[in-house]
Design a protein around this nucleic acid. Structure first.
Lengths: 194, 194
DNA sequence: CCGTTACCGTAACATCCGTTACGTGACCAT
DNA sequence: ATGGTCACGTAACGGATGTTACGGTAACGG
């Protein structure tokens, strides 16, 4: 019938988007830069996606899906809701090279939501799903808590993890991996979740 | 001698940078957009700053200075280190319209540090000064704590405040002002700082 | 009142951007 | 083998961008 397409092209282009976002920043996230990072030309990019924003949206969705899968595996491997909560939050820290890069990418996508309603909607949908996971794990770890207590503790944990990752990704010398993990453990202990 | 210059031009241009960053995003932060927001032309912008990045740096420094002054006033008005700590952290939340916009601007500038070493250096210097303030207030509130305990608690508080503000600024319906303040108070109480 | 100064606007420049049009050659069905 | 078809590269286009050059004119000293 026709020439066979590369089935992983969209995936590789998304990885290229993450790479450019992490190493060059949102301001240099151009079609040409993405194509260069993916080792192809702008022709392929525009053949797979109708426009630049659709490329960003696909890369955003795929990143959300990847972290969701990783987190589900962590949760499944954990022996208890308490252990799952800790593992799920720890994977979002900038305590590894990969975690640092992912945090930079996260900030880039968040900055890109300003002025892009569809990207903002994607952020909200996926972050709300993430929040429901934390709510569920907190409620399972502290069954006696009220809904308000669970909700408040979840925001403390989510905010602390995302905030510490953002701070550490921009200044890894000041916020070592050990310090970040200590802060997470301190938060969990102080809240009575460890 | 010569025609008098507008002494507040640099200040007004910085405010225009914040405005564009908050309402249009980093991707649309162009010289022309800033000039339009400031009600002038690109000629004035380039007359006051040698290039675009110098404009961004000045706007960044001025924003840091403004928040520093505001925070110093809050600290002075507070009756105790404990009250000062709470007030200083609360002003960074996205619990008001102004706080939400400032959080969006903060994220925009953070995303702009990728690939701009001078902007990154500015971020580090000023965020480290901010951290020293929190360290001092935590140490004053809990004099018996070790340096490690103070350092860990400071990261918990900074991360929680910045992270909650980032989350809330992108989804204010999910994270109400009351929820954010409750999360801050819960963190302070859980750590034994209230 | 007037000449000088430089603030600021206007307009152009080269470059880069997203997007489109078209060519080509690899692969599949026949 | 071979013809057709689509994946992908090449290259161009209009528009936007950062930056530069230049002109007018408001404001100050005299």
């Amino acid at each position: 019938m026709s020439r066979a397409a590369n089935p992983r092209a969209a995936e590789q282009l998304s990885a290229a988007v993450w790479d450019v976002l992490a190493h060059q920043g949102l301001e240099h996230l151009t079609i040409r830069a993405v194509a260069a990072a993916a080792g192809c030309t702008t022709g392929l990019v525009m053949h797979r996606f109708p426009n630049r924003r659709a490329l960003l949206r696909h890369a955003r969705e795929l990143l959300h899906e990847r972290t969701r899968l990783r987190v589900e595996a962590l949760e499944e491997a954990a022996g208890s809701p308490r252990e799952a909560l800790r593992a799920v939050l720890a994977q979002g820290l900038a305590s590894t090279e990969a975690g640092t890069l992912e945090s930079v990418v996260w900030i880039g996508f968040l900055a890109a939501t300003v002025g892009d309603p569809e990207l903002l909607e994607l952020h909200r949908i996926n972050t709300r799903a993430w929040r429901r996971r934390i709510l569920r794990l907190v409620a399972a770890t502290a069954p006696s808590w009220s809904a308000d207590q669970v909700s408040t503790a979840a925001l403390v944990l989510m905010g602390m993890a995302e905030g510490a990752a953002a701070l550490a990704s921009a200044d890894p010398e000041t916020y070592s991996p050990e310090l970040q993990e200590a802060a997470l453990d301190r938060t969990l202990t102080a809240l009575g979740l460890s």
